[in-house]
């Protein structure tokens, strides 16, 4: 499909890190299926404060799936601070661009990741 870059098609066709983490340290859900896209991110944080594992499940179009996959790759191994610096625009750039009409609705991966990190920090604060 010509509207997507090769990188998007690669991540859509072979999405990396798909799945759930049973005992996740943080979970973040954004979007809703009524609008078209929904993503749930799961993170596991190691003792050094790095994202040891990043997994997700995504309901949505090709772009939404590719975005999730790319975010998981970008975030894996990063510290919390570094991962919080991942932006929507940065993700789109790494994907070789996204169609203009998909920039808003499908580009939710960074938000879902940040939400999972917030969830982790909140849980950690309560400990």
């Amino acid at each position: 499909m010509a509207q997507y870059s090769d990188v998007v098609m690669d991540h859509f066709t072979n999405p990396r890190n798909v799945g759930e983490i049973e005992d996740a340290d943080g979970v973040g859900e954004v979007g809703n299926p009524v609008c078209g896209d929904m993503m749930t991110f799961y993170i596991k944080v190691d003792e050094e404060g790095r994202l040891a594992e990043v997994k997700y499940k995504t309901f949505g179009c090709g772009a939404a799936i590719a975005v999730s996959s790319m975010v998981s790759e970008m975030a894996k191994g990063k510290t919390i601070e570094e991962a919080l610096k991942i932006t929507r625009d940065g993700v789109a750039e790494e994907l070789g661009g996204l169609p203009a009409n998909k920039m808003h609705c499908s580009n939710l991966g960074a938000d879902a990741l940040h939400k999972a990190i917030e969830d982790y920090l909140e849980k950690k604060g309560k400990e």
């Binding site: 499909m1 609008c35 179009c61 090709g62 939404a64 799936i65 609705c105």
Partner: peptide
């Protein structure tokens, strides 16, 4: 969602359409 089905079917040589928002 429809677009995902459409794209993967296209990779198998099957052309269809969808009424999904995406």
């Amino acid at each position: 969602e429809g677009e995902g089905m459409l794209l993967l079917l296209d990779q198998q040589g099957v052309a269809v359409s969808s009424g999904s928002a995406c």
